[in-house]
Amino acid sequence: MTLVAVRNLTRIFDVSKPWLNRVVERRKKAFLTAVSDVSFDVAERSVYALVGESGSGKSTIGKMLVGLLPPSEGAVKIRGTDLARETDAAKVDAVRRDIQMIFQDPFASLNPRWRVRDIIVEPVASRGGETEGMAERLLEQVGLSARDAGKFPHEFSGGQRQRICIARALASEPKLIVCDEPTSALDVSVQAQVLNLMSDLKDEFGLTYLFISHDLTVVQHMADRIGVLYLGRLVEEAGPDALFDDPKHPYTQMLLSAAPQLDNFGRDVPPPTGEIPDPINPPTGCAFHPRCSIAQPVCSRERPEMRDLRGARVACHLAE
């Protein structure tokens, strides 16, 4: 069953200089299209991963999903409710309660002046819910001790803080947790602990994750379905096996070959060419065509539509 339906999601940021500067320097308004026409479905109790490099718009999608940013166009529907357009306050609140988020930086995501107990129960306390013993129970569930409830965040290491963030996310008993690079600030051995914890909790509470990451190996480990983003557009969507064994979009192929691998000693393959273009002036047609080894004239003229190909969805004119 579909929990989240994302349809033609677009987000445009106004990155113009202030009015006076524009007048003096005779510049036009500048717009950055961070996310452009992205559609996908997240099935209940599954892990949907968004991968991409910087500027791919993956975090922006995450923020629109949880309602921190309104979409410019398109819609995010969670159980059929569009957070940005729904006017029934009770319905909005019910949906909000079902969504939580885990952030990248465990040092910035906990209020340094609050005790762990107050941090964890805030999602429930702010709605006037009963919180007696809740923090202690959740702390034990994420592998910390109930005694930690009285401490302040600075007394914990990065991995422990991320566990506290997970405990806070669980407090309101959500259905969906958006995880924005949850382990990229952590060391490998700590990352393993946190990823295992997240898998366990998913099974225990029947959670759905939207997992945002730049790390392909982590994504492969966690995800049931993976969407690859390039410059704000979804270029390929597939299950992990299909994506890693048979990548169809040239960008996916490039990403996979560029990712460092543990069993590729002294590998000397030619590295990918070029860099991610300026998102304010993206290339015409397929945004990847200047770096693409199989690009044809059509690629710079026409933007490829998403099409189904052997169990995957891919946005490429030439992929076979």
Binding site: S157, A192, L195, S199, T217, Q220, L262, D263
Partner: peptide
């Protein structure tokens, strides 16, 4: 062991206990 690897699939990651 705690590094996710393509060849390991979706098995549980090996964990070093503690920090």
């Amino acid at each position: 062991g705690s590094t996710p690897l393509a060849s390991r699939g979706k098995d549980r990651l090996h964990q070093i206990p503690g920090a």
